[in-house]
Design a protein around this nucleic acid. Structure first.
Lengths: 223, 223
DNA sequence: ATTTGTTTTAAACTATCGTATGAAACGACT
DNA sequence: AGTCGTTTCATACGATAGTTTAAAACAAAT
């Protein structure tokens, strides 16, 4: 039995060294970054020998890439599924508010919850700023598919909207949502009480109303 | 003459080792980050000995903090001045579009130009994600003053707007503008031709129209 | 019980990091 | 010319990084 062949077996052995290393990596990379986390830190957190990282993953960078294969693709699927659900439930013509709100929660939600998601947004922010991923697997595998899915859904929700405006509108929505996430991280980071006005649920309500109005201004009379 | 006393002299000796080190730091920190840049890299780029960093700045971290004292406060002043200018030129009641556009260019402009600003946004993004600055001198000295200035100006431009909505509206505008900057960085980073649709000037035109519409939906009839 | 393949371990290896040091070079002034 | 404070230099130090290695521990099958 070689090491490569039994990956499927190990994946349901939930507390193996390999899994513990991945969990430790998620914790430490999110808090201290890739460069700020040593293999010795990882091994200590996972309760194993430092050689185990290279044994199971070949290198520190491979361990990092494995985190992304796990979580990022799941994020993408969640978002796209959420868009498709709204479209199909409304027989192909969802209301603007329903579409934006659904997308917003799919976008922000998984990154906000206590269990794991909040750590991934930190890792994601770090990756955008200093990349350690092999290719541009972030933009191609996550961003682009999500954007095009949302653009198509938006065209269905508001056919009166000029096609050339659709990417810009999605850009504005995503910009506000990313800012929502960043704001949440900032509130926890600095203890700036001035930021406590922005409760996530109210912020999303606002983004929905604000964006819908912006779109309707483009699609004169429609929607 | 001690080292501390003649700082004013050195500051106008434009090609001294100290200035060259600051320039090199701006370049390298923006490209490789704080942890990714060694003192030896800095010395090589500045054409000096590695001991010079500790000689002039005491430590690597002090050199980093010096960058922020230089540039960040300037960014803040540019933005606030731009807001004040629009307000005063319109006798206290600027048009929504003028205010947003002016703020947008003040916000995005200095970070877009070829000379220096583009590098600072990268350093800024890195600092938000893994901080190496002494205190929370970023949020308190830069973000908060800018936000309150814009909120006050917005209240003047649109008195009909509910006061409780003002922070949210500014939030949306800033979120889109930050996203504009990030998008620009992303276009250069990955060579994703799908993103080339977003030309900065057109994006800002859109942000102005989109946001003004969103605001007017809140201030029913007003503005 | 021995073999076989996998996992875990302690230790060593090489490289690089930030910092410190002491001497040489420099410039201005007496 | 000689002195003094400042700057530059080559080099060394201790710490820590990622990776490798060889042997020990282990589990399962024959």
């Amino acid at each position: 039995m070689t090491k490569e062949q039994d990956d499927s077996m190990k994946s349901h052995a939930d507390h193996g060294v390999r899994e513990r290393l991945l969990d430790a990596a998620e914790n430490l990379f999110s808090e201290r970054g890739f460069g700020g986390t040593s293999i010795r830190d990882l091994a200590a957190a996972a309760g194993c020998n430092i050689a185990s990282v290279n044994y199971y993953f070949g290198s520190k960078e491979n361990l990092y890439a494995e985190l992304w294969r796990r979580h990022l693709l799941m994020l993408r699927d969640t978002r796209i599924a959420s868009i498709d659900k709204v479209v199909s439930e409304s027989d192909g013509r969802p209301s603007l508010e329903n579409l934006i709100r659904s997308f917003a929660y799919a976008f922000v939600g998984p990154l906000m919850d206590e269990s794991g998601g909040r750590r991934m947004i930190r890792i994601m922010a770090r990756e955008m700023v200093d990349p350690h991923l092999p290719s541009a697997m972030f933009g191609k595998d996550v961003i682009e598919p999500t954007l095009t899915a949302m653009q198509q859904a938006l065209s269905k929700a508001c056919p009166e909207l000029d096609q050339s405006k659709v990417p810009l509108v999605v850009f504005s929505i995503v910009g506000q949502l990313v800012h929502t996430i960043r704001l949440k991280a900032m509130i926890e980071w600095t203890h700036d009480e001035a930021l406590l006005v922005f409760e996530p649920a109210k912020v999303i309500d606002h983004v929905v109303a604000f964006s819908a109005a912006g779109i309707r201004a483009y699609a004169k009379g429609g929607c």
